[in-house]
Write a protein that binds this DNA or RNA. Structure first.
Length: 491
RNA sequence: GGCCCGGUGGCAGAGUGGCCAUGCAGCGGACUGCAAAUCCGCGUACGUCGGUUCGAUUCCGGCCCGGGCCUCCA
């Protein structure tokens, strides 16, 4: 059992060999807290959560660091637009982020550093870069000198000249070279700022990750993750800053998740297809869509693009229905300590092949359905649960899954509200609002089932079928087996 | 223009130099008072043109198409 990861730095899969197997460190770029996180943000959260779970299974001490960027021009702009203090905006948004990804069953990272709490470390790093001739001050700005770093471009595989040729580089008068990027910049009195050797200012975007990963994981980290769009410039610049400041390799394995599109289009506010995690979770609150979203994400390999569509979500839910059905049918089998299925381990070891792992889960579910003796059932059930746990799924109560829990809406800044009813699993901003159906109360369902069974006893099948139809209209599906009737809410 | 990914059956989506993906949907059967669930069976899939090979969807090259990045971005 050995983990293989695709390393962006090498553009190839390679065996993961930690520097120190007793202390494995992973740094993942977290959110900039200026607005609700969107479903694109959910992808790295879920992908690296699975990697974290896998690493914890393989190594005794894993430190997972995911930062919160709470100083940024977008934050300043959003606060101004909302007429809201910056600290209130970032606190509110960070809290919403935690609530949202909690619904996705993502484990919290071990450390969640905030940029504003590491200004001192950033300033210290910038000073070292200046001392070593890799950065210079100009008109209150401090810029990183790309020309001073012979290795610049090794992560994103592009040369400085190619960047300039792109001609979209910001040419500022204080730059010695158009490719240079900002480490520190002056801040207006009404904007967040900190005293520094270069006057009152605030950090550039890239320096925070360099400073925070150094502080919490050391100069050289095992794994650095994020979305592919961050490869350039963000991660390239992190490499440049950290390696020039420390003279040591920065990250040994770079892991990048692919992009998410919505109905085949790039998600953007201008296209009107911008979906927040929060809105996605409201699509079908009674059916725990956090887990549906999770299976949807894991159904595609993390480096492949993934397309958010209604059909894809329905298929994810169908997969979960199958898993939970197998578990429901084995409900009376005692739970035993379970072993993760070897195929699941092997699939995840191969660069996090979650679709293949899901296939193994389907096989387990099928085997469980077919198992005839109690010991096989117990073993397969336990294996299915343990394997699911490694993927962060199948943690719910089986009956709750089928009967539809009444969930509290994900907390908003003003509190929480109770949401009842299962809307269609609608997708897209235009259809999110329509979840107005009201649940039939469970007591009423049970009463009708009793009435139907009484009818069946006296062979009044017309009445029995009438009641079945009444319930079907409410989205309730009945299943008669072994003398008892169970029910579930249909999708 | 530069760099990087992809194109697999109705849909989604793994994978492999010669034999099975898997799920959903569909069809047939078993089971059921009827259903549902489950089980069994069923589908001449690998963009295109060449090359290597005994044999390629899988390796190599050209082409076509799609996507991402090129200092806002997970």
């Amino acid at each position: 059992m050995s983990l293989v990861l695709y390393n962006t730095l090498k553009r190839a899969k390679e065996p993961f060999v930690p520097r120190d197997p007793k202390h494995v460190g992973m740094y993942v770029c977290g959110p900039t807290v200026y607005d609700f996180a969107h479903i694109g943000n959910a992808r790295p959260v879920i992908v690296f959560d699975v990697l974290y779970r896998l690493l914890k299974r393989r190594y005794p001490n894993v430190i997972y660091v995911r930062n919160i960027t709470d100083v940024d021009d977008k934050i300043n702009a959003a606060a101004k637009a909302n007429n809201e203090p910056i600290a209130a905006l970032t606190a509110r948004t960070a809290q919403a982020f935690h609530a949202d990804i909690g619904e996705l069953n993502a484990l919290p990272p071990d450390v969640e550093p905030r940029a504003t709490e590491h200004i001192g470390e950033m300033i210290a790093m910038i000073r070292i870069l200046i001392e070593r001739g890799h950065a210079y001050e100009a008109q209150g700005h401090v810029l990183f000198s790309v020309a001073s770093d012979a290795d610049y471009g090794k992560l994103s595989n592009r040369s400085r000249d190619e960047m300039i040729a792109g001609a979209r580089v910001e040419i500022a008068p204080y730059k010695k070279d158009p490719a240079d990027f900002v480490l520190w910049k002056p801040s207006a009195p009404d904007l967040p700022g900190w005293e520094s050797p270069w006057g009152r200012g605030r950090p550039g975007w890239h320096i925070e990750c360099s400073a925070m990963s150094k502080k919490h994981l050391g100069q050289t980290i095992d794994i650095h993750g994020g979305g592919v769009d961050l490869v350039f410039p963000h991660h390239e610049n992190e490499v440049a800053q950290s390696e020039c400041a420390h003279g040591a390799p920065f990250a040994r394995y770079w892991v990048h998740n692919g992009f998410l599109s919505v109905n085949g289009e790039k998600m953007s506010k201008s296209l009107g297809n911008f979906i927040t995690i929060r809105d996605a979770l409201k699509l079908a609150p009674g059916l725990a869509p956090g887990e549906v979203i999770r299976v949807f994400m894991l159904g595609t390999h993390y480096r492949q693009p993934i397309d958010w569509t209604e059909d894809a979500l329905k298929q994810a839910r169908s997969s979960l229905d199958r898993f939970y059905t197998a578990l429901r049918n084995a409900a009376d089998v005692p739970a035993v300590a379970g072993a993760v299925d070897p195929e699941v381990d092997a699939a995840l070891d191969d660069d996090l092949n979650t679709p293949l792992a899901l296939q193994a889960l389907h096989r387990l579910a099928g085997d469980l359905n077919k198992a005839t003796n109690v010991s096989d059932c117990a073993r397969l059930k336990a294996s299915l649960l343990a394997s699911g746990d490694l993927l962060g799924i199948l943690k719910q109560d089986v009956e709750a899954w089928f009967k539809g829990r009444i969930v509290a809406a994900v907390g908003t800044a003003s509190g929480t509200s109770t949401v009842k009813g299962v809307g269609a699993l609608a997708v897209g901003a235009a259809t999110i609002s329509g979840s107005g159906a009201v649940f039939m109360e469970e007591g009423e369902i049970e009463r009708l089932i009793d009435a139907r069974n009484a009818a069946r006893q006296r062979k009044d099948f017309a009445e029995a079928d009438r009641i079945r139809a009444v319930l079907a209209e409410q989205g309730i599906v009945l299943e008669d087996k072994a003398g008892t009737t169970t029910w579930r809410r249909a999708g």
